[in-house]
Amino acid sequence: MAEETPEPPETPNPDLRDIDPQARARALQSILVEEGILSTDAVDEVISTYESDVGPMNGARVVARAWSDPDYRERLLEDGISAVAELDIGVNDEVMELRVVENTPEVHNVVVCTLCSCYPWAVLGLPPTWYKSPAYRSRVVDEPRALLREEFDTDLPDSVDVEVWDSNSEIRYMVLPQRPEGTEDLSEDGLAGLVTRNSMIGVKRLGEVEA
């Protein structure tokens, strides 16, 4: 093959970049399986776990419990991941440090990772594409109100302060949204059904535009 053109040293693995990523991923998988570092069932299980077992529904259960049980809410705000582990949703409390920040009538919180894509996998699953995009990461820190209004139809009144949480360490953040009005009669399951991923990232407020 005539692929031996010298490349500048600052471009790592240039030849690999020209190959279809599907072939590259499976090639590396094959070598790692042969080396005993990975197994075929491990790959399949990782994929199915992120496709069906972890996701925003877990965070929604946590929020619904916090709305229904004031003691649980206290524990959640004190030590997020231990409180999550109480609900038997398949996380152990050593998987990450989680901080839950609570929205109030006066304060709205929104989460970002400006440097990469840190996100509370254990409670929300893997992040949506927009969360990882430079467009979100660049703008939410300096123009959070404009971004929420223009991209998510979330129009925050001036009376509500906006606090942005840039999660650059291994501590992860999740927003505890406000319980919408008129939900006093709902069961915990019913409440969980109202809670969306975007409300737990903080780009939406429940009960105003969404519920």
Binding site: V141, D142, E143, D161, V162, E163, V164, W165, D166, N168
Partner: peptide, 10 residues
């Protein structure tokens, strides 16, 4: 140049 109030970071 900003419409936010506060920013928290570790």
């Amino acid at each position: 140049n900003t419409d936010g109030d506060g920013l928290h970071i570790e």
